[in-house]
Nucleic acid binder design. Sequence first.
DNA 1: TATTGTTATACTCTATAACTATA
DNA 2: TATAGTTATAGAGTATAACAATA
Lengths: 141, 141
Amino acid sequence: MPKYSETEELTGLASELLTHIDVLTQRFLLHKTADLSRTELAVLRTLADGPATMSEVTNSLGMACSSATGVVDRLVDRGLAERTRPDEDRRTVNVALTKRGRHLYDHHTEDRLNLGRGMLEPLEPAERRQLLALFRKITNR
Amino acid sequence: MPKYSETEELTGLASELLTHIDVLTQRFLLHKTADLSRTELAVLRTLADGPATMSEVTNSLGMACSSATGVVDRLVDRGLAERTRPDEDRRTVNVALTKRGRHLYDHHTEDRLNLGRGMLEPLEPAERRQLLALFRKITNR
DNA sequence: TATTGTTATACTCTATAACTATA
DNA sequence: TATAGTTATAGAGTATAACAATA
């Protein structure tokens, strides 16, 4: 007969889980790379799949279009993105990564992958697979 | 003989892990509660352990003290925190939660715990313990 | 003179509302 | 008239540098 109920255990484990996530967030995920803000990175990630209109950018990021204007302004100023007005519909704006923007994004992606490797590094190969199996069950993917 | 090396497997698992973390961040951790910003929550969490000076707040959060002034200003304006000048050293400022601030923080804490429970909910009890054991090994706690 | 905190200033990020250009 | 995007404006969050009060 257990000392406490499954509900009580769940609460304790949930609390501990949140602490672990906080630690990992501090240790790995807030690690800034490439002098790019969270927002700038989100826009670059969207553009990495190919050029997009401002509407597509804002839909993808869930932000107001007036906010996106400023972010893209700064990316353009830094030579990371380019705007063009397509002749098909001159109301829209096409935004695309420049070569430099692509390079910076790839650099960030590699850095991020290293953080992921760093997280798994303390585990044995079998444990890593175990962890991923549990994550799949949680996210249902 | 494996089809690919352990290094290649690590990279693949790391990439998948980061995707799972992104999903969980979107699904659970960015869930806003109680109309408190990230920064405001961080300050409340510091104050929840007891009153603190501005220096203690800024050290705890790793922010510039000029930034903390504004955040605490807004918390005070909203009736969530109070400033006092202690007679022992009148250069310092003591910041403490008000009853309302405490209440709001407790409310947030309970919401957050529910998110943690929600994350573990799809797992069997034994799997939950397994997951936590792996997290302990990763964070070394 | 050293320490604690605020003020001044500036930049990013965000949103709502008004506006321009195009369809 | 409807749509795509920018501009105007405002507030939060951040930092550096200058400043005031206290030790």
